[in-house]
Design a protein around this nucleic acid. Structure first.
Lengths: 113, 113
DNA sequence: ACACTACATTCCTATATGGGAATATGTCAA
DNA sequence: TTGACATATTCCCATATAGGAATGTAGTGT
C-alpha cells in the first residue's frame, strides 16, 4: 500500500507546509482564493487544489459570494492534533526542568569561579 | 514534485497512524523492538521501518543493549506541532462559547414555553 | 450572446511511500 | 565457529501525490 491520502485526516492534510500557511492565513478572516494566491505567492491552481484537500477534511469552510469563493479556517478540525500533541506536553516540561537545572548548576558554578 | 518525504519533518512523520501509536507506546518507557511488535501487532520489518522514519526526524532516541535496541519517544520533537496547533486554540474556544450561548438561549426559550 | 473575471479540474510526470517477502547484519552463547 | 536470536535492510509494486500547463465552468455586466 502507498501512503495514506492527504484527505484521509487532518494529520495528513497539514503535513504539507503550504496548507499550513493557508490555514494560518485564513484563521482570522475569510478570504477569496485570489487573495490567498496574491498573499502567499502560489499558483492559483495550486491553491485551489490545496483548498480542496483542506475542505475534504473539514479544515476550511467555504461560502460563495458572487463569483468569489470565500474560505476560512475551521480551527475545530485541528483539535485532534492539538489534543494528541498535548498528551506529550508533560514530557518536554520534564525535559525543560532538566535544562533549567543544568542552567542553574552552571550559573552556580560560575558564581563560585 | 511528489509529496514531501515522511522524514522531512515531524508533521510528515506523524501523519502515519502507526507511527503515532508507536510514539504513544514509547512515551513512558523505552522498549525493545520486539515488544513494540508484540504490543501493537505489527510486522517486525514494518516496525523497524517506522522507527527509522521516527529516528530520522528525531522523534525517538535509540540505545543499544546487547542485541536489543531500546527506543523511546523524544517528546521535544513534537513541540513544533503542539505550538502550531496551539495558535488556533482561541478560535475553537470562541466556537465553544458560541455553542454555549446557543445552548443557553435554547434553555431560556424552553423555560418560557 | 459575448467578453471578462474568479475558480476548479484535468492531464501529465517524477517521486515517495507502506506492506509483504526474503534476506542481511549484528550480538550473544556454547 | 556455529547456531539462535533481535533487528535492519532490500526488492517489488500499487498508489497517491504536488507542480506545471492547459482547459473547463460558473457568475457578472453589457
Amino acid at each position: 500500500m502507498a501512503r495514506a491520502a492527504t484527505t484521509s485526516d487532518a494529520f495528513n492534510a497539514v503535513a504539507e507546509p503550504r496548507r499550513r500557511e493557508i490555514l494560518n492565513y485564513l484563521a482570522l478572516q475569510e478570504r477569496p482564493v485570489g487573495e490567498i494566491v496574491a498573499s502567499l505567492g502560489l499558483e492559483q491552481p495550486s491553491v485551489s487544489k490545496h483548498l480542496r484537500v483542506l475542505r475534504g477534511v473539514g479544515l476550511v469552510h467555504v461560502r460563495r459570494e458572487g463569483r468569489r469563493m470565500l474560505y476560512r479556517t475551521n480551527a475545530e478540525a485541528l483539535r485532534p492534533l492539538h489534543e494528541w500533541t498535548k498528551t506529550f506536553e508533560r514530557f518536554w516540561q520534564h525535559q525543560l526542568s532538566r535544562v533549567k537545572e543544568r542552567a542553574e548548576a552552571k550559573a552556580m558554578a560560575l558564581e563560585k569561579a
